[in-house]
């Protein structure tokens, strides 16, 4: 088997006395969708923040494409090919929808010390930016102001921005949160289609989505990864059922809900 695209070893982070992640080992394979599930407060978003470089881990290592990136700042990781979407929509509200994705493309097209040519007339930017919008179904909104979009459209724009950068690894923090059923189904199809070119670390609460998409699943509880494996292994795992599924009714298994 090839070395995984992203590896973490013993990733730990605590805020004061409160443990956010503790000794997390994770392997995200090339071209795979790796879901991280767990109850609220399990440390999933903190994990993503450490992977993206917004939080520095107290200990442990992060290796991306064979390179130790543990101490690299956010923007340097993004340039290596790690794109992140945010659980709480984080876009450029004062700009048009197209400008939002255009910036994502621009970030990966060399430096931006270009002072003269008009960026919005640059086909090298607008082409891929428009393509990313079409991919998520926002093409018709390209000229709209980003702040005027609906909540679901904001989520779509988040994904478009992650796609537009031509990154190798997408860290998607609850991409479907707040989406309608139809948009959500569309997103599942879209994410599955991305596997050819990208690897995805997916945090998601909707178990139907997780089991429909994931190649591997890691279960986090109280900052620890208590289990990791193929979906059917996770479904059958006793530890998982006790720690995580205990919240659901007896006899029920995850994924059936």
């Amino acid at each position: 088997m090839n070395a995984p695209l992203l590896e973490t070893r013993g990733l730990s982070k605590a805020f004061g006395g409160i443990t956010a992640t503790e000794g997390v080992d994770l392997d995200v394979g090339e071209g795979k969708i790796h879901a991280v599930i767990g109850p609220n407060g399990a440390g999933k978003t903190t994990l993503i923040a450490q992977l993206a470089g917004m939080l520095a881990p107290d200990s442990g290592r992060i290796i991306f494409a064979g390179r130790d990136i543990t101490r690299l700042p956010t923007h340097a990781r993004a340039r290596l090919g790690i794109a992140r979407s945010f659980q709480i929509t984080s876009i450029f509200h004062a700009m048009s929808v197209l400008d939002n994705t255009l910036l994502a493309v621009q970030a990966h097209d060399g430096h931006s010390y270009r002072f003269w040519r008009r960026a919005r007339r640059d086909k090298r930017l607008t082409g891929p930016a428009m393509a990313a919008l079409e991919q998520v179904g926002l093409g018709h909104k390209a000229a709209s102001n980003a702040s005027g979009l609906s909540h679901g459209e904001h989520r779509q724009l988040e994904i478009a921005m992650a796609l537009a950068g031509a990154s190798k690894l997408l860290l998607l923090d609850e991409p479907m949160a707040g989406m309608g059923a139809e948009e959500s189904a569309r997103m599942v199809v879209l994410l599955r289609g991305l596997k050819e070119t990208k690897s995805i670390l997916l945090i998601e609460h909707d178990m139907d989505v997780v089991f429909a998409l994931a190649d591997r699943i890691t279960v986090m509880v109280d900052g620890k990864a208590i289990a990791s494996g193929k979906p059917e292994q996770i479904r059958a795992d006793e530890n998982v059922r006790r720690a995580y599924l205990g919240m659901e009714g007896p006899g029920e298994t995850i994924g059936d809900a």
Binding site: H75, S90, A94
Partner: peptide, 24 residues
């Protein structure tokens, strides 16, 4: 209106997002 200006205006609008896109 050039790429540089887009980067600067993006940083004004949402600095964290710009960094996560890959802008220093």
């Amino acid at each position: 209106n050039a790429r540089f200006g887009m980067a600067v205006q993006g940083a004004k609008d949402n600095d964290q997002r710009m960094q996560s896109l890959g802008f220093d």
